[in-house]
Design a protein around this nucleic acid. Structure first.
Lengths: 122, 122, 122, 122
DNA sequence: GTGGTCTAGACCACA
DNA sequence: GTGGTCTAGACCACA
């Protein structure tokens, strides 16, 4: 489930976004499932409703959820696909930066280590 | 030596910067060595002098070279260190993005492959 | 028949109104026909009775249906004509968007052309 | 200059966005110009800084301005083009609604009048 | 009840 | 100084 680290340097609203997207990608949340309301999630996570609101609006803007006044928020159709697309863009970003490093004469091992550190910390 | 790909989507002045920095890091150019003049390099690479000018200005701004007016350009003292610092920023960028992918449930192997592809293409 | 899209950003009560009006205009419902009750329609569409109630109230206020208390709702005499009048809502929408374009400094001619293209295509 | 109507049903942050975009399109603000800071604009318009912040973030997200911590906000390169593109989407919306009206048998003149009213009110 | 907007005011990182 | 994040709490439209 979604867990917030209030002492992380990563903003809380980003943690909420990533947590919900992870739940969607891993199937804990399915398309068209209703999300907990902003107030509920706010209470569950002990986070201000405005912060949850900000996360939900970005998810809405990215087409990951659909939200409507008085109706609540739902996982959007095609949400998994949209999230996957954005993640593959990030893989391409890694490839681009690694290409610069290769170009600059940095050993491949250093770049592989950077990736490994990120996964080790998880 | 420095080679320009006019059809790359990477701006030519960036290619010039990266080429010179690579030559410095790999020792082809040493600190305090004089660089070819803008006109010479322009002719050698068949590149507009303004483009070389722009590359040199950015190298100067980054403390990689020093350009005394009228006396030509020289590799700055500590140039290797400065370049290395900037490259370690890029390693940190890779680590950050990889952390997002880890968070999102993407397998480490996919991220490692992205790095590997970049090095294989070199 | 009337179909509700819970994931649309259009309010559900508007969807109900438009659905019923479409059925009237296309002759699926004739003037003086009885409508399903609020509870029936609520169950058929899996929509909150309050929402159906709100839709019916607006249809009543617009003279599209008549709701005698306890006797159910019926398509009003002259309903088709009144619905046609309500298309002026869409005219208002055009006015709103045109107001934004005016606000943004777009020439009036461009907006008029957009309308003209729509009619030319008919 | 940018004027806010606190009693309008249009949210204040939208009024700010539209006002700034209008200033950009009409040339009052040029690309790379610095915008007033969030706090300054907040004071100038007697609007809460958070509301200005929200407007600026959406402008940033849309590539109309670039904002950086400690540096301030600037009109982005290509801002005029990006705004124009979005406005052409609104023209398409008008065309869509006009097509519905045409379909329903409403005279073209009525739709043209709606556009004209919007421009007359400006 | 539900999402959306707004104010007031605090604190942070970066320049 | 500047933008960015967060809390606390109010009020609105819609269901």
């Amino acid at each position: 489930m979604l867990v917030i680290d209030k002492f992380s340097r990563k903003p809380i609203y980003e943690q909420v976004i990533e947590g919900i997207e992870r739940d969607i990608v891993t199937g804990i949340l399915s398309e068209r499932d209703q999300l907990p309301s902003i107030r509920e999630l706010s209470a569950m996570l002990s986070v201000n409703p405005n912060t949850i609101q900000k996360a939900f609006q970005e998810l809405d803007r990215n087409g990951v959820i659909v939200s409507g006044q008085g109706r609540g928020c739902f996982v959007a159709d095609g949400a998994v696909l949209k999230i996957r697309e954005r993640l593959s863009v990030k893989l391409a970003e890694i490839e681009d930066i690694a290409a610069e490093l290769a170009q600059a004469g940095i050993e491949e091992e250093n770049a592989l280590d950077a990736v490994h550190r990120a996964y080790a910390k998880k």
